[in-house]
Design a protein around this nucleic acid. Structure first.
Lengths: 212, 212, 212, 212
DNA sequence: TATGAATGAGACTTCATTCAT
DNA sequence: AATGAATGAAGTCTCATTCAT
């Protein structure tokens, strides 16, 4: 009771302020990209003065990188949640796709920002881009592992290619939804995607190991 | 010797100046997006003063929209060129995919810019985004027509979905190449994509028309 | 018939172009003052390219000065029109005031511009201001003459002061109308003004020449 | 010696900076009007960088409006100072006129700016103009009250008209002084103005109440 | 008689960032 | 833990003007 947090607004609560800044930043940066995100706009949206943002983050680059890092963490948590490892391979692939689709639909700001950063090519690369590509690479590696587990007969090249194709499809479908609006049934499209990739994997595995 | 009009004050050639501005703009905007494209940078790259850019384009929005328009025209020309209508359906689909892949690889700046614009969500939408989405919609419609011709048994929903999936895959594969670099064999990935979509279409058509 | 002025618009008619430019300029400058008047805006309003304006006028200063000159000429013509020299002194003064009031109400753009120029104090004075003050001085001198004619008993100082007061009142009433809008009955206010000035002149003349 | 905080980086004193900016702005804007006032010029005159001006004022419009607001406040204070309510009506009217004349002569920048703004007619009206007209309307209302107190027999129309005429005369005389220079004896002219308006009021009141 | 194109200077404004408190 | 104030650089765009045709 004596801590006296009775006054109106935040009162020297670092973590809370940081969260508010990141919330504002992910929204703005997810809508307008790196260059379109001004510290002043973030300040206006989160209610803290610009100089306070610099108390929590070294500079704009640092802020955007933090947005990517936090965004990826919660995205990963959403994807990894169910973790059910049962059923036929097709069922498992489809369940994963559904999971990913839902996670994508839930973190559109973070992912839009990441994709925009990924598409950019500026002389001095923002740290946020580096981070995004790194976590993407990690996601790629994990997916390759899953593919190898489900289709042990595939050779390395095929696993890589299929993973690349699977992730590219996910990117494209996410982009489609962002363009077209919330009416798109992302889960259905991801299920179609999962089936096609599954079929392709099956056929490639058969060709690689015809008599197993 | 040949008239030597390469010296400083080139003699008021509007069309040529406009072209130079657009060339500079597509390159910069394709690398850094809308907000990352400063008129000063375009001016520096094309050699014309910033105020001259405003003689040819009303404002930055107009310039970017013109970049999109011109880029789409030449992209369409590249895609439509061969127009061979022979071979099995799979061959034809694969040929189209190859064509598209080559055209994508040849206009990366325009397409990166377009995708970045498409991903953005700013309160006042740049005209370039509108234009890009419009031409994308046209491309979608044409693709639906091709799908219908090749697979007359598909119902409308299936044609739409397949087309959406095909284009989304193309977007994703293009994005992958832009992220990963020129070493990616885009044509091979597009051929895989074409086959998967073709197989899916075939199966869906069979299911729709089991006794044909 | 062979002069072939059948094509759409103006066709190399210098005087007409000049008039159109001046018409546009007086309107814009009368609304926004010297600095607020851009050649581009005049160009847009008159339909001629900016470079054509420079064919007719040396520079912006010259254009504004020409606006003032033309405006004053037509204003003078409007004021001088009736020229009736009959009736009692009060009637004549009132008739003059009515005339001036009508002329003011008919050339508001020119007069607003002139007053704005007169109020400004910039290091290098626009020629238009000089011209406006000159013609104002001429008007002042003529008014002094009329005052002397109507009230021969007034000494020079009194005539000057009364004239100054009369013109200042006219300026103030015009300004009032410009601020308040067209609903003001400028003629009525000018008639009041005329009567007050007339009474003052009469009284001053009586005092100066008590036994005549 | 007294702390010596006059050196280059004055220690973040918002109110003082704001005052310096307004001082510079009223001088420049009073000499050259709205469009003639550049932020760069204000910056040069007050010694603060242009970007600092935007810390204190949202934009140029806001700055000019603040100039008008502050100018009117000090002008009102100057006019209201003596507040002597003794003497014959003519003496009181004359005293008021003298007061106003002195206040006008002391705030020429603010009033010139106000009049220029009032004369302008631009599509999007500067806020400073709105404010100036509002305070003018207040001044008008107060003057009407004084007129009614001094000449209770006047009907409402007559009070309004006389007030309008009195203020218009003040505007015109101020303008005259601004045009002609400091040699004009503004106080003398205002005393003449006061007497004429007083006489007119007296006569109108007599006519309205002939048998009192 | 006119104009399309060009141009350096300068307009307003926002930027990311710093610093003293 | 935070912030009011300041600031140089850079942003977009308009300015008055020129010049070759």
């Amino acid at each position: 009771m004596t801590r006296g947090n009775t006054d109106r607004k935040q009162r020297a609560n670092g973590a809370e302020s940081r969260r508010r800044i990141l919330d504002a930043a992910v929204e703005i940066a997810g809508e307008r990209g790196y260059d379109g995100t001004s510290i002043a706009a973030v300040s206006a949206k989160c209610g803290l003065p610009a100089s306070s943002i610099y108390w929590h983050f070294r500079d704009k680059d640092d802020l955007i990188a933090a947005v990517i890092e936090r965004g990826f963490k919660s995205w990963l948590a959403a994807v990894a949640l169910p973790g059910e490892e049962t059923g036929t391979p097709l069922e498992r692939v489809t369940a994963m796709a559904t999971n990913v689709a839902k996670a994508l639909a839930d973190s559109p700001d973070f992912l839009r920002l990441g994709l925009m950063l990924a598409l950019e090519r500026r002389p001095t690369e923002p740290r946020g881009r580096t981070v995004f590509l790194q976590v993407r690479e990690i996601a790629h590696r994990r997916t390759v592992d899953v593919v190898r587990t489900l289709f042990p007969d595939l050779d390395d090249d095929a696993s890589e290619t299929l993973t690349t194709y699977a992730i590219a499809g996910a990117d494209g479908l996410f982009t489609h939804r962002e363009i077209t609006g919330d009416t798109v049934d992302l889960v259905a499209l991801f299920e179609l995607h999962a089936r096609l990739v599954y079929d392709a994997a099956t056929r490639m595995a058969e060709r690689a190991q015809p008599c197993s």
